[in-house]
């Protein structure tokens, strides 16, 4: 089975976020890590390969420096990596990203394309659906369980009151949520072998994607401003013997605590 895991490089969750003049997230190499949500997609890819055989490809769209994080995916267990990189891709919105990833998936061929449910930088969560739309192939989204049998992918999707079951013929796209598995650590042998595994690089020209449809040129969404979250805690002090207890009780009743 050909399994392609789509991975994004995102700034570490603890990194201080800064923005460029045109309101894009400033990406620093030293803060870059594999989008934590995608680690579950990679783990699921490796588990499906263990069951069904085949190959796991780590596919990433990003700057040339993203190779380092593709290498990490290879250390964890992917067989080879593919980096889609092109100066014209910079500033892509979700649709632009989806066009590039769809073209890469088409070029690689796949039975199963796995995604994290969202990226920890933008939390858009629409790329898997957009890729499925571009490819005209089914998406099974937000899977908490995945089984492949008889040429079909079957998932469980957590819902408010239980779970839904959905299935589709493969090739299919599946986005996974964090309850689906526990990602493994890279083994020492995996780390030592990661250098020997190939990483191919595709440009937009290699993929035959029109550069005006991606990047800043093709972006239909434009960030116009950003402001830090107001994390200041607002406390109200009730003190003294002058009815403070009654006011606290009234406050708790108002908050529906009592």
């Amino acid at each position: 089975m050909n399994i392609v895991v789509c991975m994004k490089e995102t700034p570490s969750i603890t990194a201080v976020k800064r923005f460029t003049a045109d309101m894009r997230l400033e990406r620093r190499k030293e803060d870059a890590e594999i989008n934590p949500f995608d680690e579950y997609a990679l783990e699921e890819g490796l588990r499906q390969r263990e069951k069904h055989g085949g190959e796991v490809i780590a596919l990433c769209m990003g700057p040339v420096t993203a190779t380092e994080n593709i290498r990490k995916a290879l250390a964890i267990g992917a067989d080879r990596g593919v980096l889609v990189t092109d100066p014209a891709l910079e500033g892509s919105d979700a649709i632009g990203t989806a066009r590039a990833l769809a073209a890469a998936l088409q070029k690689l061929g796949f039975d199963l394309a796995l995604f994290g449910s969202a990226a920890a930088d933008s939390y858009g969560g629409v790329v898997p659906a957009a890729v499925a739309e571009v490819l005209g192939q089914p998406l099974l989204s937000f899977a908490s369980k995945l089984e492949i049998a008889d040429g079909r992918a079957k998932i469980e999707r957590a819902a408010e009151t239980g779970y839904q079951v959905a299935e589709a013929a493969i090739p299919a796209l599946v986005s996974v949520i964090q309850t689906i598995n526990v990602p493994r650590y890279p083994s020492m042998k995996g780390i030592m072998q990661s250098k020997k595994k190939p990483i191919d690089t595709f440009s937009l020209a290699d993929l035959g994607v029109d550069a005006t449809l991606v990047g800043v040129a093709g972006a239909r969404e434009k960030a116009t401003g950003s402001s830090p979250v107001d994390t200041q805690r607002k406390g109200e002090l009730f003190s003294g013997n002058d009815g403070a207890a009654d006011r606290i009780v009234a406050f708790l009743v108002e908050q529906k605590v009592l």
């Binding site: 380092e68 990490k72 030592m192 990661s194 250098k195």
Partner: peptide, 15 residues
């Protein structure tokens, strides 16, 4: 080098 860095990072996370 890359391997040394990855081993250190992995062991830090594991610990």
């Amino acid at each position: 080098n890359d391997e040394q860095t990855m081993i250190r990072t992995m062991c830090r996370e594991f610990a």
